[in-house]
Computed example of a mutant assay.
Amino acid sequence: MRRIYPALSIVAPSGSYIAEGIKTLEIRSWRPNELPLKDLVIVENAHYLNQDGDEELGRAVAWVDISSVHAWQKSEIEQAKANYWEDGYWAWVIENVRPIHPPVDIPARRKIYWVELDAV
């Protein structure tokens, strides 16, 4: 049965790191409107989507739950798999990771958007 899910695109290899349980924080300059965010589809894509309307082909690699968001701390660089720390960003806490095997080709877009996939 197909269902509509919220989705978030993440540049490779970070989507795969989330699906593998290696990356437990997603760092963003913005926060979601509502929490918790359940059954969020992680869509891995090749390029940063910087402009409204930017889109490219990605692949759905996991379902996750975002349980909370807090100000990103310098001590959390490893959990985020980041190369550096910068003040003013938000750490999205990733939980309940369910990899999608095999990954499914799907559009990658900016912010949180909606996709249709077979049910979890």
Rank of each mutant, 00 (worst) to 15 (best):
R3H: 04
Y5K: 09
Y5I: 03
P6H: 02
A7C: 04
L8V: 02
L8R: 11
A12N: 04
A12E: 12
S14M: 14
S14R: 14
G15L: 14
G15F: 12
G15Y: 11
E20L: 01
R28S: 06
S29H: 15
P32N: 08
N33F: 03
L35H: 10
P36Y: 02
L37C: 09
L40F: 13
V41T: 04
V43S: 09
N45Q: 10
A46T: 15
L49Y: 03
D54S: 15
D54Q: 13
E55D: 07
E55A: 13
L57F: 03
L57C: 00
L57Y: 01
R59K: 15
V61R: 11
A62W: 00
A62L: 08
W63C: 04
V64E: 01
I66A: 04
S67W: 09
V69Q: 11
V69N: 07
H70G: 06
A71D: 10
E76S: 12
E76I: 10
Q79D: 11
A80V: 04
Y84Q: 06
W85A: 04
E86D: 01
G88P: 00
R98H: 11
P99L: 08
H101K: 05
P102V: 14
P103C: 00
P103K: 11
V104Y: 00
K111T: 11
W114E: 12
V115H: 03
V115G: 05
L117S: 03
L117Y: 02
